[in-house]
Amino acid sequence: MDEQKQVSPLVKMGLELGPVLAFFVGYLLVRDQVFTIGGRDYSGFIVVTAAFIPLLLACTGLLWWLSGHLSRMQVMTAVLVVLFGGLSVWLNDERFFKIKPTIIYLFFAGLLGVGLLRGQSWLQYVMEGMMPLRPEGWMILTRRLALFFAGLALANEVVWRTMSTDAWVNFKTFGITVAMFLFFMAQSKLMQTHGIVQKD
Rank of each mutant, 00 (worst) to 15 (best):
K172G: 01
L154I: 15
I176L: 13
W138N: 01
V82G: 10
F148W: 12
R143G: 10
A58G: 03
L29Q: 14
D32A: 04
T165F: 09
L112W: 06
G110P: 09
R143D: 06
L62T: 14
L116Q: 11
M1P: 11
Q187D: 11
Q74E: 14
R143C: 08
F184G: 08
F148Q: 03
G14Y: 03
F184K: 04
L28M: 13
R161Q: 12
G175Y: 01
W160S: 01
I176K: 02
V178H: 09
G61H: 07
I99C: 08
P101V: 06
D2G: 05
R118I: 06
W160P: 00
V30G: 04
T60V: 14
N170S: 07
Y105W: 11
A50I: 10
R31Y: 01
S188G: 09
M76F: 13
Y105E: 12
A155L: 15
A78T: 07
M1D: 02
M13F: 15
R134I: 04
R31W: 07
A179I: 05
K100N: 09
P54A: 06
T177C: 04
G195I: 05
A50P: 08
I99L: 12
G85E: 00
R144Q: 14
Q192E: 12
T77Y: 11
G85H: 00
G195V: 03
F96Q: 08
G151Q: 02
F52E: 01
Q187E: 15
F148L: 05
A78D: 00
M139D: 05
T177Y: 08
I37D: 00
Y42Q: 09
R118L: 15
T193P: 00
I104A: 07
L17T: 11
E94A: 15
L91E: 14
G137W: 02
D2W: 08
N170F: 10
V11N: 01
V79P: 01
F181G: 14
G175V: 08
T49R: 08
G175T: 08
F181L: 15
A58N: 04
G115R: 11
W168M: 07
L83D: 02
D93Q: 13
G85W: 01
E16K: 11
V126S: 14
A22G: 10
V47Y: 01
R134Q: 14
T177E: 05
G129T: 08
M73A: 14
V197K: 14
A179S: 12
S121H: 10
G68R: 03
G119D: 09
G113A: 10
Q198W: 04
V158R: 01
I104V: 13
S71M: 02
D2E: 12
W64T: 02
I53A: 03
